[in-house]
Write a protein that binds this DNA or RNA. Sequence first.
DNA 1: TTGATAACTGTCATTATAATCAGTATTATT
DNA 2: AATAATACTGATTATAATGACAGTTATCAA
Lengths: 204, 204
Amino acid sequence: MDKLTGKQQNIYDYIKECLNNEGYTPTMREIADYFGYNSTNTVNDHLQALAKKGYIIKKPGAARGIILTDISNETVIINKGVPIIGRVAAGSPISAIENLDGYLELSEFYDESHFALHVRGDSMIDAGIWNGDFVIVREQPVIRNGEIGVAIVAGEATVKRISINNKEAILYPENEFYSPIRVDLSETEFRIAGKVVGLHRVIR
Amino acid sequence: MDKLTGKQQNIYDYIKECLNNEGYTPTMREIADYFGYNSTNTVNDHLQALAKKGYIIKKPGAARGIILTDISNETVIINKGVPIIGRVAAGSPISAIENLDGYLELSEFYDESHFALHVRGDSMIDAGIWNGDFVIVREQPVIRNGEIGVAIVAGEATVKRISINNKEAILYPENEFYSPIRVDLSETEFRIAGKVVGLHRVIR
DNA sequence: TTGATAACTGTCATTATAATCAGTATTATT
DNA sequence: AATAATACTGATTATAATGACAGTTATCAA
C-alpha cells in the first residue's frame, strides 16, 4: 500500500478519530472546517488520493460515505466479546435478546497492566489452575502473603501461592504431591511479577 | 432501559447490521426502503422512539447522524486483549516485547455462535468448573455422550456431563457429593444448548 | 371513553452534502 | 525541462437527506 503524505495522513487520522469519537465519518465540509480549508474540493482531492492508495473507499453520492479499509477488515472489532446468557426462557432461542446479561470481554476486566501466562504443570490444580490454562496476572511488585501470584525465580516464571519474610520466599504449590519451594533471597534472584486475578481455559 | 417493540428492534438491528457491513449507519430513506415504508416519517417516528428509550442518539441535521449508544460505550474495542508472556528474561521488565507470545482475546477463539454462562453451584468442581466461573458455550443442538455441555431442562440451564439415549438424558455432575440427574424425555422439556469449550474465572 | 403510544401515509421546505468545473502554485519524478 | 502528483481557492450545481406538518388507524391501559 502506497505511503501517505503528511497531510493525507492527518486527514486519514482525523477520519479515524471522528469514527471513534462520534461514531460516524465526517463530511467533506467538516474535514475542511477542521483543517481550515476554504474549499471542500481540497478535501475531495485528498479523499481521492486516499481512495487511490487504498486507505479508504468512497461511496459515490452517499453522505458520510467514507469507509476505512483497515477497519472494515476488522469488523470483528465492533465485537462485544461473548454474550452472557442469564435466564433461558423455555422454547426461546439462546440468542434471544431477553436472555442477555451482558458481554464477557477480557478488555473489560483487564487493562494494560495485565498479562497472561500459559501455565505448564499441575502444581496448582487444587487452586483450580490446570496445566494449559492461561492465568491473567496484574503486574505488581509485591503481593500479600498467601496470595497466588507469579514469581520470577532465577529467570523462571512460576505460578504459586507466595509468602515472603526478610530472608526467604516460600512458594506453596496447591497439590498434595508437591512440596513448598524455599528461595533464599540473598542467594537467588527473586521478584514478584504480579498477582493472579483471572484464569482462562480453552476446552477441546 | 425500556424494552423495544418488535418493529423498533428490527430497525435497531438493521442499523447495527449496516454499521457492521457498510461501515456507516443508514439514512432514514434507506431504512424506509429496506422495510418497505412509503414515508421517511415512519422511520423518523421509530428513530425518535429508539432515541427516547436510549438505544440511539440522533445528531440533529446530520446525515447518517445515528449513534448506537451501546457501541459508543465500547471504543476500547480497538483493544488487542491481554498480552501473553512466554519466557521471562532475567532482569527485564515483564512487558518487554521480546517476551510477547501473542494476545489472549476472547473474540479470537469464539465467534457469534458462542455464549457465556455464569455458573452457579459447585456440581462441576471436579471438572475444574467452579461456582462463579463463566463457561463459554458453543451453541449446538447435539453433543457426544460424555461431553460437558449446557442442557436446558424445563427452562433451567445447567452445566453437566451429558449422556442421552432414546428415552432419557442423564446429567452427570462432577462432584462426589452430587448424584446424576435422570430426565425422562417424554415427560420433561429437554434440549442441548451447546458444548462447553472454554472457561473464564475472575479471581479477587 | 378518553388518552397515550405505536405504526403508518404523503407532501414539502430546508439544509446538508457531494461532486464538478476552472483555475493557481508548489513540489516531487522522470 | 517536461510531467505528474500534491495542495489548494472559489463558485456552482445537483442531489441526498432531515425534519416538520397534517393526517389515519389500531391497540392497550386508566
